[in-house]
Amino acid sequence: MITIVLNGQSRTCAAGHTLAALLEDAGYAQRRVAVEINREIVPKSEHAQREIHDGDRIEIVHALGGG
C-alpha cells in the first residue's frame, strides 16, 4: 500500500494503481473532472497510463455554481 494526499486528505491505495483506476474507485470514471498531481496537470489522455506513486498530492476538481 502507498499513501497519497487526495484533495487535501491523506489516503492509502494499492501500489501500481493508475490515475484512471483511482478515478474509477472514487466514482469519477464518467464525470467531467480535471486532475493535478504534484501541481502538474495530467491531461485526460494520460489518465490510463499515469501510475500513482507514494506521496503523490492529487487534486481532482470540477465545475460548480459560482459567480
Partner: peptide, 14 residues
C-alpha cells in the same frame, strides 16, 4: 460563469 473547486471525495457520487 462557474467556479472550479475540489470534488467531494466519496460524497454524492450520483
Amino acid at each position: 460563469t462557474v467556479a472550479i473547486r475540489r470534488t467531494n471525495i466519496g460524497q454524492n457520487r450520483d
